[in-house]
Design a protein around this nucleic acid. Structure first.
Lengths: 349, 349
DNA sequence: CAATGCGATGAATACGTATGCAGGGGCATC
DNA sequence: GATGCCCCTGCATACGTATTCATCGCATTG
């Protein structure tokens, strides 16, 4: 009968109604084989009637884990408040889905790089493990990563995969991607290819792309020209515009631009248009990431696709393995060339 | 001394080291005024040394709330796995930030509409309240919303704001937006304006935009022509393409297209280009949402901007108020016209 | 018939924190 | 010097679940 309960039903309420002990209820609902089928069915029915839900806080407290991962998205404090790097958004989507498939909940948090409480989610038992996204300046963040490792925090980072790294990282093969896309430009007859993007060790992903770029040049018997490289430390459109302006002001000739990210490339396209240069006739432009907008800019952007779906799965998988105490290693994912019109190859629809 | 502790430090460990009771530690760290400054400082220092973090599970269990919100993102099971509606992504960003500002954590979950466990997050005390995004077919989801209300679940929905709704909803003023952008097209001399988007009560947001559209027509002495309206029930590019094909196959003349979402509008642009129709010279095209890509398509898309930042803040604020037991009402947010090239008004840079 | 074993259940306890209640000590007032 | 008061602290307990250990009934076996 519709007895008015104060507050939510607990396992004791179920036990009382079923005429068994709380222990049995707990066992029955967790699927323990110690409970007879008869009792189990009775308990399940009553639980459903009472709309009973296991209290996660109590359950987590008892079991000492939360079946939850935390996604920490770091960003430059200077970034506009409402915008998020579309590439990270795509990763977020695939990570969320991977978590669902594994039965884990996902806690999402934006953090300023200046904060120091990366491990708090795990330390406070809100999450069993961490996924780190958007660690910009590697040299700055490296000491923090080391600290996390020392504390025994379970975490995986999305980013460059380097030798002697303290942490576990998953990243795409940036060097290979940079090499492939440069090869492509060379095959199209381009010889003076500018590179927009930081080449220092501070931003290993960008610099790996640059390294691949240089390898391709050398393999073709060309020498990388420092005058054709412009630093851009962050992946925002404005920096793409400014970089092209720097390039133009230097007065060095160039017939192609390889931007280290699509956002930079889009900025570059805009700056070239402003300067009256035609793409791809006078200048080829290529990017990296294949963000959704890339196929819509004019002309459509040739770029390197990172498999975000696979990446999300791997990140989640690797954290879970760490949590289970299994040995885990960093890994690199393949990068794939996506040819559109901005490079000057045959037109796509 | 570097005493090796097994496991994490607890408030008892701090208490022992500080020579006080566990109660005092708890009070000191929660900022209770019952503790002397002297004791508090001592405890804080020790807590820092031991890298102590309050166990959220225990704390939540005791206090019966989790200081966490859950964002439930519903989507059509047919949607491609890796893509998320960019408008929702933008909302996600602003909601995440709003949560941070309020000191709440955010749990993100994708759900299939077929699932029935919307309230589980609150029932299991994983979250204190829910934010619902992307409830597509309103008539289908309405009974569920009613159920949530009956259960006393704290939740806010992003979507159309209707009379006699059981739940609290926050949405932009779709009718006004539809009216404004149609007025704009009319002012440019367009008279045969096609509308792409479902006009039925199943999708109240689209139908409100359609209603505003019709109001504008009527105010201008024009009658809405059913032949100029094409149903599109979901906001994906492919449907935009198909809708224009339907429109062309009908053979009715039109000089403008108002797509109920930017994604539909982008599909429409593509279909028009394929059909050899020039935008905006022969056909004006406008959308709704102002997703990031909108400014990059060719020609740049005139659209209606929804203030996602404000929306995120309002959603979070309204859930928190419900949690605090304060009375809450639905609200509509203003919509703002963003004029770019696709409508045929003066060119932007 | 006693001994053994097994399947099913209950009692008791731990997880770590927050808080109501009680108490101890110091100081002021009369 | 006794009384009262206030400030601070400690004791004990509740939050709801999962699990170890003990128990009890029943069947099987020698």
């Amino acid at each position: 009968m519709a007895t008015v309960m104060k507050g939510k039903a607990t396992s004791f309420d179920i036990a009382y109604k079923a005429g068994v002990s709380q222990s049995t209820v707990s066992r029955a609902l967790r699927g323990s084989s110690l409970v007879s089928d008869d009792t189990r069915h009775r308990i399940q029915t009553i639980a459903r009637e009472l709309n009973y839900k296991v209290d996660k806080n109590a359950s987590n407290l008892r079991r000492q884990h939360s079946v939850t991962l935390a996604l920490l998205l770091f960003e430059d404090p200077t970034t506009d408040d409402s915008l998020i790097n579309p590439f990270f958004l795509s990763m977020l989507g695939s990570i969320t889905r991977a978590c669902v498939r594994q039965g884990y909940d996902l806690l999402v948090s934006f953090q300023q790089l200046s904060n120091d409480w990366h491990a708090d989610y795990q330390d406070s038992h809100k999450a069993d493990g961490l996924i780190l996204l958007g660690y910009g300046d590697y040299l700055v963040s490296r000491s923090r990563l080391q600290k996390l490792v020392d504390q025994g925090t379970h975490f995986v980072r999305w980013g460059a995969v380097l030798e002697g790294q303290p942490d576990i990282s998953i990243g795409c093969d940036n060097a290979l991607g940079g090499r492939a896309i440069t090869d492509h430009l060379l095959a199209l007859g381009r010889r003076r290819i500018a590179f927009i993007g930081d080449s220092s060790a501070h931003f290993p992903e960008f610099s790996a792309r640059y390294r691949g770029h240089c390898e391709a040049l050398c393999a073709a018997g060309l020498e990388p020209d420092p005058a054709l490289q412009v630093d851009a430390s962050d992946s925002i459109e404005r920096l793409g515009i400014e970089s092209v302006q720097v390039l133009l002001s230097r007065g060095v000739p160039f017939d192609a631009i390889f931007a280290a990210s699509d956002l930079l490339a889009i900025g570059a396209l805009r700056a070239l248009a402003n300067a009256g240069l035609r793409v791809p006739e006078q200048v080829s432009v290529v990017g990296f990431d294949d963000i959704p907008t890339a196929s819509f800019v004019n002309p459509a952007l040739t770029t390197v696709m990172q498999d975000t779906k696979l990446a999300g799965e791997m990140l989640v998988d690797r954290v879970l393995r760490q949590i289970r105490g299994e040995p885990v290693e960093s890994a690199m994912l393949p990068a794939q060339l996506v040819i559109r019109r901005s490079c000057g190859a045959q037109a796509a629809p």
